[in-house]
């Protein structure tokens, strides 16, 4: 690089608009049932939050760094609907997006990626068949395999993995499963605390920190974001690489530009 530029770097004039370093991502999540965005509290009591594609496009325009679409009613008959929806989303969105729900094979993923998804998220199917993680990673690369984990802290203080949208408890400890998943090739962990989800009382800081500090892949914290300060906390104390939220965005309690400006003012590196 030429000297002129080096001088500019040193004087800091090139860093205008943000310092050089990793940016924290804000990710709106759209839980989808029959093409509509829905949101519940602690995984139940679903409310309608609008058309999924319209909302997604709005968030992209407002500066969301990524989008996650989770088909929460995905069944075999509906999988075709999901790929059509993904195709429609891809026409309106020019930022990266992840799709999840009912994905259980390399073929499922292939269809979704061909229709425009950038990453796919797997949960129950990966737990039941961990080989799926390695198969997807070797076929499409780790960068498009997101391992989603729903965890609940029980009275013994441990965080256990839950399956089937939070309906089925397992005896697996969350951290152990996350670590195993990364070893198999998961490129990112989407961590949802069921205790916090829908409560708007803040993210699960300790659990997020444990995963983020000990795993060599990005950790997306999910569940509990209710105020802008909660996001500051999960980035600063929870060491999350990204934070995901749904209802606060859908019901316009917090706007993305406002949140990002707030984070920036708190010295958290975000894309503005």
């Amino acid at each position: 690089m030429d000297k002129e530029v080096n001088k500019e770097y040193k004087s800091g004039s090139l860093s205008k608009g943000g310092f050089r370093g990793l940016t924290k991502r804000i990710i709106p999540c759209l839980d989808i049932k029959d093409g509509r965005t829905v949101k519940g509290t602690n995984f139940v009591n679903l409310r309608d939050a609008g058309d999924a594609v319209e909302l997604g496009a709005l968030y992209a325009q407002q500066g969301a760094d990524e989008l996650v679409f989770l088909d929460i009613t995905a069944t075999i008959e509906k999988r075709k609907t999901l790929s059509k929806l993904v195709n429609r989303i891809a026409h309106h969105i020019n930022i990266p997006f992840t799709v999840g729900g009912g994905i259980s094979s390399v073929d499922d993923v292939s269809v979704l990626l061909q229709n425009g998804a950038d990453k796919i998220s797997i949960n129950t199917s990966a737990f039941k068949n961990p080989q799926l993680i390695s198969d997807l990673a070797s076929e499409f690369g780790s960068q498009c395999v997101v391992l989603a984990i729903d965890a609940r802290q029980e009275e013994d203080g441990e965080w256990y993995v839950y399956l089937n949208g939070g309906r089925t408890k397992t005896n697996k400890i969350c951290f152990d499963w996350a670590k195993h998943g990364v070893m198999l090739g998961a490129g990112e962990i989407l961590l949802t605390s069921m205790n916090h989800d829908g409560t708007k009382q803040g993210f699960a800081i300790d659990l997020t920190k444990q995963l983020a500090e000990n795993l060599p892949v990005p950790v997306i914290a999910s569940g509990g974001g209710g105020t802008m300060q909660h996001f500051v906390d999960v980035f600063e104390n929870g060491k999350a690489d990204a934070a995901l939220a749904a209802s606060i965005f859908h019901f316009k309690e917090i706007a993305i530009p406002e949140l990002k400006t707030f984070l920036k003012a708190k010295n958290i590196n975000v894309r503005l």
């Binding site: 690089m1 090139l14 940016t23």
Partner: peptide
């Protein structure tokens, strides 16, 4: 963390 998967800045030369 490799791969780099993120939004990052581009600076002119």
């Amino acid at each position: 963390k490799v791969p780099q998967i993120e939004w990052n800045q581009i600076f002119l030369t």
